[in-house]
Design a protein around this nucleic acid. Structure first.
Lengths: 143, 143
DNA sequence: CTATCTGCAAACCGTTTGCAGCGTT
DNA sequence: AACGCTGCAAACGGTTTGCAGATAG
């Protein structure tokens, strides 16, 4: 899908879910849908302001909340605890995250479902979610 | 190792590293070394206060910092972003965490090193750390 | 026209820092 | 006796909430 189509698609999904398509939302969606790395709310706010100067940080948080509800973005947790947001991709993804710049790669990892089921059996837990994340330094930051 | 020995061992390690063994530290170490689940700083503060009422939250943070330096505790990250602390075990562990009460189980997972090396090769990243964590509801919270 | 959305300000929560006095060594 | 440690209070940064005015549908 073309990035412009992606943006249009997100806005349509917002609308279809009863949300309104507004200028600030348009700016935020444009940024997040096309970013190649995970963005923090502040980064979105700063960049978004260049396009739509009246943008407020609160709106960034509220819009991200909506996009997460719709499954369009996912949160990324890092060792530093900083919350970043990344466009969600098809199915469950395993992430490789650059600890310097937040750039994110996806990789096909092991399928963890068998493991999860094994562990459920062994412990009696009901497994609801799993994280498989690698952290490292990307080639660009490394140079 | 007996839990009382474990506590003694931690206090000795503090001392050996040039830190002082004080009443508040003793209370904190006792709690964290023997806990069967990951504790948040506030929980440590509240419980610690029962044993040593003058305990301050700041001291909890500062002591956890020391214990982390010495490799005696490890941070645990959850989807809610809440930081909890767990006694560190031998080698690298994969965790299963109860999202309700913070109880933690360890499990022998796949060895992720081959995967990490494969991903390094494919992406050019230098992989430094990995997380394999499962989240769920433990049998007790589930009932 | 109405209900949602926005931005501001202020509240809020977990964490960190400055500092004067206390307690370990 | 000296220096690290403590607890209080206050600062701090990120996130959330209340509210009156703006705006999409």
């Amino acid at each position: 899908m073309q990035t412009s189509d992606l943006i249009k698609n997100w806005l349509e999904q917002l609308q279809a879910s009863g949300y309104r398509v507004t200028e600030p939302r348009r700016a935020i969606v444009e940024l997040v849908a096309t970013a190649d790395h995970a963005l923090s709310p502040i980064e979105i706010y700063d960049s978004g302001r260049r396009e739509y100067p009246r943008l407020g940080l609160v709106t960034v948080y509220r819009t991200l909340e909506r996009l997460e509800e719709l499954g369009l973005v996912q949160r990324v947790h890092s060792p530093d605890g900083c919350h970043r947001y990344l466009r969600a991709f098809e199915g469950h993804q395993h992430l490789l995250i650059c600890t310097r710049c937040g750039r994110v790669e996806m990789f096909a990892g092991d399928d963890l479902d068998p493991l999860a089921r094994r562990v459920e059996q062994a412990t009696g837990y009901q497994v609801e979610e799993h994280w498989l994340q690698l952290f490292g330094v990307c080639p660009l930051c490394h140079a």
